[in-house]
């Protein structure tokens, strides 16, 4: 019998440990597929963050380095500068890359560091149990904004990809979602392109993927997808936010 569907070679056999309905698994699968399709598994070193995304070090089949909270891109910079011919990527949550690691997010991009960053934005701190993130939406209730995010007290949600797209060293930025089959296909195209940018040695590439957190949002998996579409997609600018000239020819 012919096997028509299986795990991509970019993923190990370790079973995902995510909550039901969490879309981390879809996003990791897409990255795993891209690693396989570009035949770069053996050339790639991934950097994992702190948080739910940190489990990725066990799920991807390439070498991995575990970074401190927020430091993944600085760690990735060190690896890439040591081994310029290898592929280096970070897989980080929104709290990791857009709050505690913002200085690295800005400067890794500004330097045009030849690494790829995948940002998973679920508007909340997942692993610590549903606290406010830099991406938490206005009015959104979390355990540290129990009355809803108040813009006067907590400020506005940060659309990091939009900011990063303004920097010269950045060659490719996309903001995608995995809420529907169509969007999953688009997300994969963006992730693949972000790795191709690095393969071509062009500069920094970032893909932000909107993700659900049914457990901490207090919604069912299906309602979470609906909530993401209705609430996050209008706030976060979607699509390819920056495609440098040289990337268009890839």
């Amino acid at each position: 019998m012919q096997k028509v569907f299986g795990r991509p070679k970019g993923l190990t056999e370790v079973a995902f440990s995510f909550c039901p309905g969490c879309t981390h698994g879809i996003i990791m699968r897409l990255v795993g597929e891209v690693l396989e399709e570009l035949e770069i598994i053996e050339d790639t070193i991934g950097v994992s963050p702190v948080g739910c995304a940190g489990f990725c070090q066990d799920f991807f089949s390439c070498d991995f380095v575990g970074a401190a909270h927020g430091r993944a891109q600085a760690v990735g910079t060190g690896i890439k500068r040591a081994l310029p011919d290898r592929i280096v990527f970070t897989y980080q949550g929104d709290g990791d890359i857009a709050a505690i690691g913002t200085q690295h997010a800005i400067h890794t991009a500004a330097r045009g560091e030849k690494i790829t960053s995948i940002m998973v934005n679920n508007a909340i701190y997942g692993m610590t149990g549903g606290q406010m993130a830099p991406t938490t939406l206005e009015g959104m209730k979390t355990s540290t904004s129990p009355y809803g995010r108040d813009l006067v007290i907590n400020g506005y949600p940060l659309d990091l990809p939009k900011t990063i797209a303004t920097l010269d060293g950045v060659k490719y930025v996309a903001s995608v979602s995995v809420d529907s089959p169509k969007n999953i296909l688009q997300a994969k195209k963006a992730i693949k392109k972000a790795f191709q940018v690095q393969q071509a040695g062009l500069g920094f590439a970032l893909v932000s993927v909107l993700s659900t957190c049914p457990t901490n949002w207090g919604l069912s998996p299906v309602d979470s997808l609906k909530w993401l579409r209705e609430n996050m997609m209008p706030v976060y600018e979607m699509g390819e936010l920056k495609v440098a000239e040289e990337v268009k020819n890839l």
Partner: peptide, 16 residues
């Protein structure tokens, strides 16, 4: 970008 970045870059490079 800062001292924190520098030591974490060292961390990454030392891993290789």
């Amino acid at each position: 970008e800062d001292e924190i970045g520098a030591i974490n870059m060292c961390y990454g490079a030392a891993c290789t």
